[in-house]
Every structure is written in structure tokens, then in C-alpha cells.
Nucleic acid binder design. Structure first.
Lengths: 324, 324
DNA sequence: GTGAAAGCGCTAACAC
DNA sequence: GTGTTAGCGCTTTCAC
């Protein structure tokens, strides 16, 4: 019960004391003392010495979106389960912010980084590689590290089939088509969703007209304008509308709100992504719900080292939710 | 252009070199060199030495809610503006998790903590006080630190008035009443919302019956059950329903979905909090949108030291959004 | 089974 | 105007 050296104390406090074959007595004594004094390690000091911070970062576009919100929630849980301090940072689909955020996190010596929905995953990936920070891409793929993404193509095919099967013939040729609204042409996910949409249409209808694809961006206002323009020129709603995601859908609703029940029910709607309230609108909306849990489980399997040779690109299917 | 001591380099790199009156030449030389080598400070080492980590934490209940999502987004932005690393952690309205998360953050020597929507803000507050971590409560008040919260009472009064003004007489006495659904009785915000509701009803209608208050929790399933039971016993919808927040509203919608247009339009609905999709349902929903920006601005004014003597409890009014 | 000593990368105090 | 030195709180190596 005399003095105990700092190294012994350290070993006891961080659980490595079994290996040092420290006596249970000493261990218990120190543990009790620590508890009494409410001792907590200084993680910065520990991190500095051991060059492992115990922190894991995730960058993602925004907190104000149900899909990314769920991502953050699941990430939080999985990090905690591994005794890692989760750090989520939003980067607003801005490449400069993505890099700045990653730099900052690396500067804090995070142990891992999950790059979720990054506009430029490879710029971030290179930063990580240079600094020996293991990382995984989620939601959007990069070349620098394994990527786990939703099977957007497959999801889009499902949704398009649903649109075709549930929709009805419309009076004019232009109105008798399905339209895709939202996203941006250069975006990976947008591209796959459009591919799934286009190929399904082409296969089942025979042709597809360039006008049917209307990539007007990710925000609501642009989508409202787009659908307004479209329906004005068509003279009414078309056969069906495929929204790129819930935010373009939200914009669309601002216009659809002005229409009457009868008009609305001539058209069939779907969107990628899911929002609980989209099930309770005046008309059914078919949705795909991305599997946040599945994707992050895979990401963590790689981080945990349980998946030594991960494939470069792993696809995870979304759930398909029928409207009404 | 010979050797330069570490202290000089340090001063140059962290911007304190003006005070040390280091020559521009040396400074420039070092800065260039640092850039060339892509040098980044090790924030753990800096933090250990300077006992300031440059990190700011925020704990909040969940990422899967639009209100808290906005909180996180605004927090992120404001932290970044101050060159602080934001760390958001969700604690699921679980006191144990709140304390564990705060402990973990403190262990990393965060410079400040924002305690947002904590079930037990004072337990967290004491932890902060003991460890000299300045903190502010947001969304729910505590005794340990200044609190900035939404004026729930005022918001509830506004919503209740809107319900009364827009609703119509119903066939039976029990149905000719307004009902409050969701929240939990012990919760501070629930209490104020109920107070605002009750007092307005009492003032304008004369009486209020205990059955009109149905605090069935924060989740959707409980609320669905509650509204189903209520309407079954009433034999239809009442005059108006005040949902505690958007998640109980979501549960309510599962039941309301089964009703026809005519029945729905006999009842008027409102909810605390805001969700973009709630504006596009089959009936109008009146909402209050909490002022995340306003609350966090105040929180940061305190953190920045611009508000030396903050009031213990500061109320921020929500925006009132009329449905339809 | 335990202690002594070095050192992680940085900043602050002081010396000149 | 710049260098020397000590030390933040911890972990790790090595000695015994």
C-alpha cells in the first residue's frame, strides 16, 4: 500500500495490466482510488503518446435530410459500440469544405474516416492516405478506398417498373411519358438512377425522349420551377414522375399542392429516399429506403479488420416501399 | 537561413509571432517551408500543452428529427466560423448516455459544451462544472448554466388560438373539444405546451377536461394508438388536435390516413415543430418552427464572452406557420 | 510483479 | 529578434 509508479497505474487504468502480471491487489487498490477521485484519463495525452486518438470521423453533406440523419444516427451507435468517439461533420456538398473538414479531423489524429456522400471523395481519400488514416467511402464511390454504396441502378429499375405498372394512358403523346426530375448530370448516383430509369423505359415502352430527364439539381426551389414549367408545357400532369430524392419531391409538392384530386390521381409518383411524411400525402408516393445500417455495417467490418480484402465497390440494395 | 528553434517555428505557425516580434523574413521562410512540406499541427499535442483542444461539443437526443437536424447544422456552421471543431453526439433522451457522452467529450478536453434537449441537463452540467468546461443549455433548461429555450408556452397559446378560430362545432360534447396528444408529463417542454394549451382553452371555452390531455410519449407508435383509442371512444374526430411535436403527428397520420376527406376536414390540426412535408398532407397542419439559429446565436454569444451576465433562462419565440 | 526513465509534438517562460 | 529549456499527462521500454 505504498507508492505505485505511474507506469503501473497506467497499465491498470487502461486494462493492459493482465499482460504486465500486476497483482490483483495493486490493481484493485488503484482502481478504487481512481473511482474515489473520479479520475478520468486525459485522452489528448493518451492520444499523443500512443498515436491513437480513439476518435472516428464521418463527413457527410447535411444534417437536414432524413437519409443523412439516419446515417449519422447509425454511425453514432456503431462508433460507440466500439468505444470510439464519433465525430460527424457536414460539408454541404462543397468540395472545399470536405477537404477542410477532413484536414481538421486528421489534424486531431482521428483513427478512421468515413467519407459519406462526398462530392470529391478522392481528394479526401488522398489526404487520408497521405496521413495514414484508414478510410471508407459510403454513399458515393472513390478510387482511393473501398466504397459501399446503394444500388441506385437496381432501385431505379424497381421504381420505374412500379410507375409503369400503376400508371394509365394519357391523352397526348408527351403526357403519356414518365419524367425524371432532380439531381445533377455529373453526379454518380444521379447517373445510375437515370440509367435505371431510362433503360427500363426503353425496354418496356420502346423509346425515351431526352426531355424526360430533367436534372435540375438537389434543391426544392429548382424542382418546383422545373415541374411547373414541365406541366405547363404539357398542359397537365404526365403519366408518372420519378423524383431524384426527397428534396426535389418537396419542391414538386409546392406545385402539386395547387392541383385538384382528380388531376393528381392521373399521375403516379415515386422518389428515391424515404421520408415518413411522404406516405401521407394526397396521393401515393412509392419510395426506396436506403439501407444505412447495412452500408455502415459493411464499412465498419472493413474498419474492424474483419474484411481484409474488401471489394472496391460494394452495392447494397435499398428497400422498396409501395405507396398507399 | 540557418536553423530556427522550435519555439520560433511554433510561434510562427500558430500566429502568435507578432507578439514575439519575429522578423517577417523568418516568418515567411518558415511559412513557405511548412506549406511545401504540407505541415499540419498535431492538435492533440497542441491541446495537451496549451490545455485548449479547440473542440466544442453538443449533445442532443437524435439525428433523425428535422428540428435537431437543423440544430446540428447550425451548430456545425457556428463552430466552424469560430475555428472550433464541432462534435455532435446523440444521446437518445437517455440520461445514462447523456452522462457517458459528456464524460467522453470532457475526457477529450473539449473547450465548451452545448447541452441540447438533455433529459437531465443538471447531471451533465455538474460534470462540466467539476471539470471547468463552460456550457450552455439549449432547448431544455438546467440550473447549472444559462439556458436558452423556445417559448413553448407562447407557441402553444398561438397554436391553440388558431385551432379555436378555425374549428367548428361538433355533434357531441366530448367531440366538441380540442385534444392534446404526445409528450411526457414530466418533460419541461411538454408541460409548457400543455399549460399554454389548457389556459387558452380555459380562457376561451370556459372549461377543460382532463381527458383532453393525452401525454403518450414522444414516439409515433404510441401516438397512433392514442389517437385511435380516442377517436373510437369519441365516435369520430374531435374539433381539433394539438400534436406535441412532429413524431406524434407522424403516428397520428397512420390513423388519419384511414379516414375520408370529409371526416378529416371537420377537424383542425396543429403541431409544435416543423417538417417540410407536413405542409402537403390532405388537410392543413398549423405549425411552429423553432428558431435554431436564434437559440444557438445566443448560446454562442455566451460562449464568445459577448454576453457576460446572461439571464438564467432566455426564451426565444418560434415562428408560427399557418397551414394550407 | 513493479519502478525508472524516456519521449509523443507541441507551447510558454525566460534568457540573451 | 531568437534560442534554450521545461513540461503538459500519458504509455512504453527496459531493467531488476
Amino acid at each position: 500500500m505504498g507508492k505505485t509508479s505511474s507506469s503501473t497505474v497506467s497499465a491498470i487504468l487502461n486494462g493492459t495490466w493482465q499482460q504486465r502480471r500486476i497483482s490483483e491487489d495493486t490493481a484493485k487498490r488503484i482502481l478504487d482510488l481512481a473511482q474515489q477521485h473520479e479520475y478520468r484519463v486525459n485522452r489528448q495525452a493518451r492520444g499523443l503518446r500512443s498515436s491513437r486518438s480513439g476518435m472516428i470521423g464521418m463527413i457527410m453533406p447535411t444534417h437536414e435530410d432524413r437519409y443523412f440523419g439516419t446515417m449519422a444516427q447509425v454511425f453514432d451507435r456503431m462508433a460507440r459500440q466500439r468505444q470510439l468517439q464519433p465525430i460527424v461533420v457536414s460539408t454541404l456538398r462543397d468540395e472545399t469544405l470536405e477537404i477542410a473538414a477532413a484536414r481538421s479531423l486528421i489534424s486531431y489524429q482521428i483513427d478512421y474516416l468515413i467519407v459519406c456522400g462526398a462530392t470529391n471523395p478522392d481528394a479526401v481519400g488522398q489526404l487520408c492516405t497521405q496521413n495514414y488514416v484508414p478510410h471508407v467511402n459510403v454513399d458515393l464511390p472513390g478510387k482511393e478506398a473501398p466504397s459501399i454504396i446503394t444500388d441506385s441502378y437496381w432501385g431505379a429499375v424497381q421504381l420505374t417498373n412500379i410507375l409503369l405498372e400503376n400508371s394509365h394512358k394519357q391523352p397526348t403523346k408527351a403526357r403519356d411519358r414518365l419524367y425524371f426530375i432532380g439531381g445533377i448530370a455529373g453526379d454518380y448516383n444521379t447517373k445510375l438512377r437515370i440509367d435505371g430509369f431510362s433503360e427500363t423505359v426503353r425496354q418496356r415502352v420502346g423509346t425515351i425522349h431526352p426531355d424526360q430527364i430533367r436534372t435540375c439539381g438537389f434543391d426544392a426551389a429548382a424542382s418546383e420551377l422545373e415541374i411547373t414549367t414541365l406541366c405547363t408545357s404539357l398542359g397537365g400532369l404526365p403519366r408518372g414522375i420519378f423524383f431524384h430524392s426527397t428534396t426535389p419531391l418537396e419542391g414538386g409538392l409546392r406545385y402539386l399542392k395547387t392541383l385538384d384530386e382528380k388531376e393528381l390521381h392521373r399521375c403516379v409518383f415515386c422518389t428515391f429516399d424515404w421520408n415518413p411524411f411522404a406516405s401521407y400525402l394526397r396521393f401515393p408516393v412509392h419510395m426506396t429506403q436506403q439501407d444505412a445500417d447495412g452500408m455502415l455495417s459493411e464499412a465498419f467490418r472493413i474498419i474492424d479488420g474483419e474484411n481484409i480484402n474488401p471489394v472496391k465497390l460494394q452495392l447494397v440494395r435499398p428497400r422498396v416501399l409501395l405507396g398507399e
